[in-house]
């Protein structure tokens, strides 16, 4: 398959990339891992005049773990999220969620920034970024701004990023006292997007849920946090009973727009949440 024709440029600094992206009158598109952009180009769903390759810019990739936060450069590959020893201790959910994406040769090129900018509704990492309360840093010729992950995606494949902005890094806070995990229901093992995913954060003490964070992906155009369900879980034994929880998930998700099979998806999300709670209770020995 032959991609739509475009020009290509590979800047070596962020500033040069920003100046090139700011070309009024031209459609200019950043290229990260290319694992979503190349299919869009060969299917001719996007037709840029110019593609700006970010792969040659040093400093856009890297993982920096400090006591209160983890900064991850936009061009960090998902394989590096999977394999980074410090990250596995600091925010293990990022490593495990990254490992659920696609297959190994796609993960070797896909980037964290690309995953957030592509904003696929069921994608793993955007949901985890929302759950962890991450901030997305965007830069353009006008300067830099930081956007909470929860407000970054505005629809399926749509974000608040202006066409001439580059996502440079994602900043994850640590130590909110919750332990996070991500689980998903897929159609065919691990090789494609999941149908739905759930990111659950829990603080459990004496078998009781002290605080909870619940984000579901795949039930609507963007991942959503469910504060109602979180409140329902609070002060409840982690081992349950969790009667009515699946219905609560469905009720809270159904307030937003969703795909035709939203009913099935929300039910599946509720079941994933139940399973995650059961697994956590087993680990707590309850």
């Amino acid at each position: 398959m032959t991609a739509v024709a475009f020009d290509y440029t590979a800047p070596t600094t962020v500033d040069e990339a920003l100046r090139t992206l700011h070309s009024p009158g031209l459609t200019v598109t950043p290229l990260a891992g290319g694992q979503s952009l190349l299919p869009l180009l060969t299917r001719r769903e996007v037709r840029p005049d110019l593609v700006v390759d970010l792969n040659g810019i040093p400093g856009l990739a890297g993982i920096e773990v400090s006591p209160h936060r983890v900064r991850i450069g936009a061009m960090t590959r998902l394989r590096d999220l999977e394999q980074h020893a410090e990250l596995a201790t600091a925010l293990p959910v990022l490593a495990s969620a990254a490992a659920s994406v696609a297959h190994p040769h796609i993960r070797g090129r896909s980037t964290l920034g690309g995953s957030l900018c592509h904003a696929a509704p069921a994608a793993e990492l955007p949901a985890v970024a929302v759950a962890l309360g991450a901030d997305v840093v965007l830069r353009s010729v006008r300067g830099a701004r930081s956007v909470p992950a929860a407000r970054f995606a505005t629809g399926a494949g749509a974000t608040v990023r202006a066409p001439d902005e580059v996502l440079t890094e994602v900043v994850f806070p640590r130590a909110d006292g919750l332990a996070y995990e991500f689980s998903e229901l897929g159609t065919r093992g691990s090789t494609g997007y999941p149908v739905v995913g759930v990111c659950l954060g829990l603080h459990v003490a004496d078998g009781l849920v002290r605080a909870a964070r619940v984000v579901v992906a795949g039930c609507g155009p963007v991942p959503v946090r469910l504060p109602g369900v979180e409140a329902e879980l609070a002060d409840r034994p982690v081992a349950g009973p969790h009667r009515g929880l699946v219905a609560s998930v469905a009720a809270e998700v159904a307030r937003g727009p969703g795909p035709e099979d939203q009913e099935y998806r929300t039910e599946a999300a509720g079941v994933l949440l139940l399973r995650a709670l059961t697994a956590r209770a087993a680990r707590e020995g309850r």
Binding site: G34, Q35, L38, D53, A102, P104, H105, R109
Partner: peptide
């Protein structure tokens, strides 16, 4: 497929497996 799904195009780029349909020649 040309879209990363089938793996028929996998080659090693600097020793790492990649779908050659999802990398540009200039890269």
């Amino acid at each position: 497929c040309g879209t990363g799904d089938c793996g028929a195009c996998v080659v090693l780029l600097d020793g790492e497996p990649v779908c050659s349909c999802l990398v540009l020649a200039v890269q």
